[in-house]
Design a protein around this nucleic acid. Sequence first.
DNA 1: GTCTATATGACGATAGAC
DNA 2: GTCTATCGTCATATAGAC
Lengths: 217, 217
Amino acid sequence: MLKHLFNCEHTGRMSGDERREQILRAAVALFSQKGFKGTTTKEIASAVGISEAMVFRHFASKEELYRALLDAKVSGEDKPVFPWETCDDLKRAIEDKDDLAFFYNIALEAMKKHQEDVPFMRLMFYSALEDHSLAEQFFHEFVSRVYDFIGGYIAERQRDGAFREVDPKIAVRAFLGMMIHHSLNNLLWDKRRRLLDIPLETAAKNFAEIMVNGIRA
Amino acid sequence: MLKHLFNCEHTGRMSGDERREQILRAAVALFSQKGFKGTTTKEIASAVGISEAMVFRHFASKEELYRALLDAKVSGEDKPVFPWETCDDLKRAIEDKDDLAFFYNIALEAMKKHQEDVPFMRLMFYSALEDHSLAEQFFHEFVSRVYDFIGGYIAERQRDGAFREVDPKIAVRAFLGMMIHHSLNNLLWDKRRRLLDIPLETAAKNFAEIMVNGIRA
DNA sequence: GTCTATATGACGATAGAC
DNA sequence: GTCTATCGTCATATAGAC
């Protein structure tokens, strides 16, 4: 029944690594929905379609499974990519010193990512509340780079005389606040319960305008 | 040992209601730290200094205790108070149409509240993640009033020609985002782990300035 | 109202057969 | 690698004495 997921056709049986990945995928979905304590190893096992004992063959404990999963998400192959590494519009905005396009593209790319990987967002949020150390690691490796990048751009534009005197870190906090809070609202409440249901492009455009006007010289 | 907490001196014994409140207080602290699943009835009982059985005499189930606690927080005596009902500086700002003071006082009062009632904030976030219905109720009764209030002020100032054309709801979302995101950062990470550690007054001042400049005509 | 004692079941984790 | 069976522990909840 799960044959179509198998990668090891030559053996006709699931390889260790494949099974491991399969368990991790199921665990991500469940932990992100119900948190660490709210998820049982039995649920994870039956989501994969194997016995509970198999979970403990691949991971010594529930805790280790959780850490492996966070670790893979945070520093693994599908680790978060920074918008400025992939988004051509953003690169162009920086070259052109087009402030509006700069903030617009960052906001849009970030909120798109949030929307695409809701489980990851929920996982991070749960981790932060439950105070798992890997959430801290993530926020200090990833978020501090975001602060440096956006803050660096603001500082540069201040030297140009385009932006007024304001602590770049505080400006970044304000800007991230707009978009992260917006994503959080979208992610925690489904469409019919939203106080504000607008396309991401509209949100990004408005946030960028408020930001640029807000710190313009 | 807990005698100093007793309110019923004439009987020399804890009254039912007092005991109930005591259990609720302990439960708030624990649920807010570790979430619903992460907290045990045994912990709650020993935090109060009573046996587990007593918890179940006052509340039929753990679930009912949790709901009672959310209900009391959301609509009870210590329910959230709106800044514009108590803050004189804010009332004056509205009368004077002092936009900067308007946003500054809202931000400051709100973030002060967040800081004073961290357990409540954490409870709400846990509830939102765990999808407890009372969190929804809160956000639609309380938050929608905040949107109406701030959005109403913005709309009025747009009619005055002081603010540019922008969807007031989106402007409110942006402004709430700044301060809620800032509070969230303060609440999730202690001082030594913060990327940005500034007085609330500084944050409020900067957020208000960005907001007012951001939507000024 | 408060306790001790306990029922009942779920959970994480292990043993051992195949 | 996979299973069934099971262990020990802890959780929620109840019974019944004082």
